Amino acid sequence: MSAAAAAERRSGLLVAAAAFVLWGLMPLFWHLLKAVPSLQIVAHRIVWGALMVGAWLLWKQGRGWLRAILARPRAAGMLALSGLLIAFNWGLYIWAVNAGHVVETSLGYFINPLLNVVLGVAFLHERLNRTQWAAVGLATAGVAWLALRYGQPPWIALALALSFGLYGLVRKLVAVDAVAGLGAESVYLFLPALALMLWGESHGMGGFLGGWGWRLDLLLVLGGALTALPLIGFAYAVRRVPLSVVGLMQYIAPTLQFLLGVLFFREPFDATRAFGFACIWAGLAVFAGEGLWRSRRPVVPAT
């Protein structure tokens, strides 16, 4: 590997780590905004994020980036769907954090990689080996255990994992640059989010006219940056770091969320819940280990 390639890889690793750490610490940020209704937080997140991503794309690609996407009706329609999915995911996540379910939100993002595998089998006709099926089975057993012991499945975790998994599936099926795709999704969501934000402001449920002070106003604007920056950083990193490495690094975020839920927010985590989580973590360990082993196997040339 050349010195330039090594430097690119190091920068990619640092940016990827920063993005996942930022995602993992996000519950602390949303907790600061708990006085603002969750829908209003999501509306501000979309509006300010759209403005920031739009400015970035205008600077990097000029004014033609959106026209190029809209000229492809199938891609434009799929990005509208992915925009709805990510908006739902954001809204549920913010509500769950401020309602005291940080541990369960972390479970959703632990489940997500394995759910992605299942979606790949169901929609992309991908095939799993026995080890991968065993990993899925362990995670399913953990979810079933939690549902049995608590009388209902961990619906927040499952809804977060499913919405983000379907979002990833849609984005995989549409061949659009990651940041440009986010920009198109933001365009679709911008006007409904702006209308919701203005409605909230006019009814005393927003941030700027809600009487909570300039600090919360500033945090609402920063929420847009905290939406855009990790996604842009992630898009930067995946072009410079092997996908297998990025796949392992993604567990940084739910691990930090879980630790925050237990140690900072003091959410309950008894032995019954620990057993269910342990099954899911075991499935993830098997899945990640198998993927890492396959990525390091020497490629046998075809004869």
Rank of each mutant, 00 (worst) to 15 (best):
R9H: 11
P37N: 05
P73T: 08
A253P: 05
L84A: 15
R171F: 03
P154D: 07
G247E: 10
S82C: 02
R240T: 10
V299R: 14
L194G: 03
L248D: 01
G261Y: 14
W293F: 12
L92M: 15
W56P: 00
L166G: 02
R130G: 14
P230C: 09
A278C: 07
Q132F: 04
P27T: 09
A80W: 12
R149G: 00
G12F: 14
W212D: 02
L194Y: 11
L263S: 05
K172I: 10
A17L: 15
P254K: 09
G83K: 06
V300Y: 02
A18H: 08
Y236W: 15
L162W: 09
V299E: 12
A144S: 10
A68V: 03
I280V: 15
A3K: 07
R297S: 03
T105P: 03
I280S: 02
R10A: 11
L138S: 13
T105M: 05
I46V: 15
W30G: 00
A43P: 02
Q152K: 10
V143M: 09
V187M: 07
E267Q: 12
A3I: 12
A87D: 09
M1N: 07
S244R: 00
V179E: 05
P192A: 08
A17K: 01
A122H: 00
V176S: 03
L28S: 11
A5P: 02
K60M: 10
H101S: 03
L191W: 13
A157Q: 06
W214P: 04
L138V: 12
L292C: 02
F258G: 04
I232S: 02
G207T: 15
Q152W: 07
L119C: 06
M249G: 04
L57A: 06
V102S: 04
A55P: 00
G207I: 15
G64C: 00
G224L: 04
E201C: 06
L194T: 08
V245C: 02
P73I: 10
V179A: 14
A75C: 04
G224R: 06
A302Q: 13
F275N: 00
A4G: 02
A18Q: 09
G204L: 12
